[in-house]
């Protein structure tokens, strides 16, 4: 019985060999000069996935219909899976003996590096889906660019996550169109949701010294380069959804990436971290 079906396909074997070799020699993982910025940037990647994943998981058991409940729980699972990879690499780069779990469960709010957009409360299903769509459209472009990262470790995580995020984007854009171009009630709710979260989207493209350092090292793209692609996807989907792009500034709220958060993050952490804080080292 051929137990490895693709073993005869040369490019897969080559890819696997190249990947194994690359894993052993990522030039950035032990780069002392880059360490602070690389670690911080990896925390941004991991924290966005962790906090959005946690938010979406709050719908588990509360979805309006069973299929949506399951879909949201599955999306949350994917995001928590990405968190393990990003924070796992962050811990490795930091080299201080911390694990991905330590970073998730034992950091305080001001050490979290996620966007404010992802920590906002879920609101109704319209806010949840609109926020997810606007983030998915960004996440998709970012991961696509990261598959060409100069860091093989970053590139392989991005390639894995991209397959799942492509699915997230298809699902959320489909739902934005169906609900935006749906009933009077669903249209009004989707427009209200868009107006509510719009001012938080600009932070995704706001660059600081950390972004510049990883971009210069070829690890990540310049975020401003992703903006036109995001605008095109968002413009197309909103138009099809018969929704109006708000006129207010899209970068009204920022600071999450630097650790300045809304009060909402503290409540998420209180729930998420309680067990490890109250019973250090507990496992099951």
């Amino acid at each position: 019985m051929p137990s490895l079906p693709d073993v005869a396909t040369p490019d897969v074997v080559t890819l696997a060999e190249r990947a194994a070799a690359a894993q052993a020699q990522d030039p950035h993982v032990a780069d002392v000069a880059l360490k602070t910025a690389f670690f911080d940037w990896l925390c941004r990647m991991g924290d966005n996935s962790l906090i959005l994943g946690h938010r979406i998981s709050e719908w588990c058991g509360h979805g309006p219909v069973l299929e949506e409940d399951i879909a949201l729980a599955n999306t949350a699972l994917d995001l928590i899976g990405h968190t393990q990879m990003w924070l796992g690499l962050a811990a490795e780069v930091e080299g201080a003996g911390r694990s991905a779990d330590d970073l998730a469960f034992l950091r305080d709010a001001m050490k979290f590096r996620n966007l404010k957009l992802v920590e906002l409360p879920n609101g109704d299903m319209a806010v949840t889906l609109m926020r997810e769509f606007l983030f998915d459209a960004f996440h998709f472009e970012l991961l696509t660019a990261l598959t060409k990262s100069s860091s093989p470790r970053v590139a392989e995580i991005a390639a894995k996550a991209l397959k799942e995020v492509s699915y997230h984007l298809e699902r959320s854009s489909d739902l934005v169109v169906r609900l935006g171009d749906g009933t009077e009630e669903s249209h009004a709710r989707m427009q209200a949701a868009l107006n509510k979260v719009w001012g938080y989207t600009g932070e995704m493209f706001a660059e600081d010294a950390i972004d510049d350092a990883v971009a210069e090292a070829g690890i990540a793209p310049a975020l401003s380069d992703l903006l036109p692609f995001w605008q095109r996807t968002v413009g197309e989907v909103l138009e099809e959804a018969t929704l109006r792009q708000p006129e207010q500034r899209f970068d009204a709220h920022s600071g999450g990436k630097q650790g300045r958060h809304t009060e909402h993050l503290g409540y998420i952490l209180a729930e998420m971290q309680f067990l490890q804080r109250a019973y250090p080292g507990a496992s099951w």
Partner: peptide, 14 residues
């Protein structure tokens, strides 16, 4: 644990 190349359903046997 190996991440790369990422799993694909192309690898599910006939």
């Amino acid at each position: 644990r190996r991440l790369s190349p990422p799993w694909t359903t192309d690898w599910v046997t006939e």
